[in-house]
Simulated scan of single mutants.
Amino acid sequence: MVNINKLKGKIVERGMSVGDLAKEIGVDRSTLYRKMNASGEPFTIREANLICKALKLSGQEAMAIFFSDCVA
C-alpha cells in the first residue's frame, strides 16, 4: 500500500506540484491524481521507479512510501 501522505509531502518538499511530477514521469496529471487517490490503478513498478528518480528519493524514503504497512 502506498503512503500517499508521505508521497505528497516529498512532492511539496522538492518544490513540485502533482502536475510537475506527472509531466516528469510521463503520465497525464489526472492519471497521477487518480492513482494517488486510490480511485485508479495502482502505481506500476516503472512509475514508482520514475517517481523515485524525479523526487530524488533515498532507498529508505522509497520503501517508506511505496511499501508502507499502514494498518487502519
Rank of each mutant, 00 (worst) to 15 (best):
M1T: 08
V2T: 14
N3A: 11
I4Y: 14
N5E: 11
N5C: 08
K6S: 10
K6C: 09
L7K: 03
K8D: 09
K8T: 10
G9E: 13
K10I: 02
I11D: 02
V12C: 07
V12N: 06
S17H: 07
S17F: 07
V18T: 01
G19Y: 07
D20V: 01
K23C: 02
I25P: 00
G26Y: 00
G26V: 00
V27M: 02
V27N: 00
V27A: 00
V27Y: 01
D28V: 04
R29T: 04
L32A: 02
K35N: 02
K35Q: 13
M36C: 04
N37G: 14
S39V: 15
G40S: 01
E41D: 15
E41I: 09
P42Y: 09
F43N: 00
T44L: 00
T44E: 02
I45Q: 11
I45R: 08
R46D: 08
R46H: 14
E47R: 02
E47C: 01
A48P: 04
N49E: 12
N49W: 13
N49D: 15
L50V: 04
C52W: 10
C52T: 15
C52N: 11
K53C: 12
K53Y: 10
A54T: 10
L55C: 07
L55E: 03
K56T: 14
L57S: 11
G59R: 12
Q60G: 11
A62P: 06
A64Q: 09
F66W: 06
F66P: 03
F66R: 08
D69R: 14
V71F: 11
A72P: 09
